[in-house]
Amino acid sequence: MKRERRQLSYLDSVHRDGRVWGFSILGIIILFPTLLCIIFNVLPNFTALGKGLIAVLPMYWAVGLVEIFTYVPMLGAGGAYLSFVTGNISNLKLPCALDAMEKAGVKATTEEGEIISTIAIAVSSIVTTIIIIIGVCAIVPLTPVLNSPVLEPAFKQLIPALFGGLGVVFVSKNVKLAIVPCALMLILFIAIPALNSGTVGIMVPVSVVITIIVARIMYKKGII
């Protein structure tokens, strides 16, 4: 009983602090362009602002909304509060958390999983921020290296290199569950030209929902 109460209090404090940090950072993020306007004594070009927002808002707000429902259960509470502030979720934070939980041998559904996921995502956020700070300080000597045509293919293939490693671990552990979603996504991405790097973000929630339905059917039939 005592154990349960402590667990609840940890998670509750994560939610409380996550909200405080989240709303505070939301405040200073909005303050940034506001202060730019005040300091340089200028207003945005409202026509261009409207056009720009029409071009990005419907898509990014819709995707953002779906992403919350998709990624929050996977990231855990602490991981979610951090990841939705620091960004780069599918290409960095979530793979990092998954790998950490897998290596630590903890389930994402337990408090140990919550702790490991939070630690991995926090460390990843700190290291990313520090690397970008170092990079920004040394941007002049680094630019030719980072823009080098020799290295360009390596950076371009980050996602395949990341998901090759991650995929082999998860597919080998859930072979039965993997067959239908993997086959379906392969067919869809190969057959439909509109599915590409720009639309993979939309396909993640679609694939997650399909996999859950398949998993439910397999679970009910006693296959998994």
Binding site: S90, K107, L177, I190, S207
Partner: peptide, 28 residues
């Protein structure tokens, strides 16, 4: 509890499947 664990694995697998599809998107 068992379904909750499968649900979590299904979410991870769904994400990985989408990126697997993406890797193959230009083979045609």
């Amino acid at each position: 509890k068992r379904w909750r664990e499968i649900f979590q694995d299904a979410m991870f697998m769904g994400m990985i499947s989408a990126f697997l599809g993406f890797v193959f998107c230009d083979v045609t």
